[in-house]
Amino acid sequence: MSGFKKLASIYCRGFILGMLGLVCAIPCAGAAEDYTVLRQRLVEEVSEDVIRTRAYTGKGALDERVMRVLGMVGRHRFVPANLQSQAYENRPLPIGYGQTISQPYIVALMTDLLEPEAGDVVLEIGTGSGYQAAVLSRLVDRVYTIEIIPELAESASERLKRLGFANVEVKNADGYFGWQEHAPFDAIIVTAASSHIPPSLVQQLKPGGVLMIPVGPVFQVQQLSLVKKDADGEVTIRQVLPVRFVPFTGEH
């Protein structure tokens, strides 16, 4: 065989193998998996992660109610059909329009840090597919959620209604000024990127309330900024890292 033919045949075989690899790597949507089992496995995984990060969160375990709800809400219903098979992996997923559904570990951590009570009224800025609102709705009295992208607001509203999350109200609007008609809120969660913390949101927080902003690039959360308003209206911001990491070593 000439060198050319030999090389050509090697290249061809390499290309075909590469293409096969690509095709095989694409998981088949709708693989017959028992979502309940997968969900429980995910909850266990999140619990393990929480134990590993307890030095920063100050918690060896998250609120049992939060974990129970995480095991109840079907995350696969909040992701695009072609990604449902990955819905119970502990990772963020794209939901279209340049937005993502957060990593379940982060959703659980954020929900826990908000310390939700049964009678609470919560405002969410950045509905996305509605998963965080759905989790919160099983823990509090009412959830108001604002989404900036019209298509996402519409689909999230329809989805939440269809799935029976009746205590959630979705609005397509600018979240910067909050939702004055339903203010004040016991907790506010802002998942939309911002160059600063909107002062109007802090004003709509009840004394003793908490405002949370996850900060970081898309698909990642770098830190959670936790704004607390005390009974006198004084505000402090606590910056919680979702990860156990101390930059100082040795004697420093």
Partner: peptide, 14 residues
């Protein structure tokens, strides 16, 4: 190594 271990638990931005 520490960052890689933590990457899927919020350490990825590091």
């Amino acid at each position: 190594p520490e960052l890689l271990t933590l990457s899927e638990r919020g350490g990825m931005p590091l």
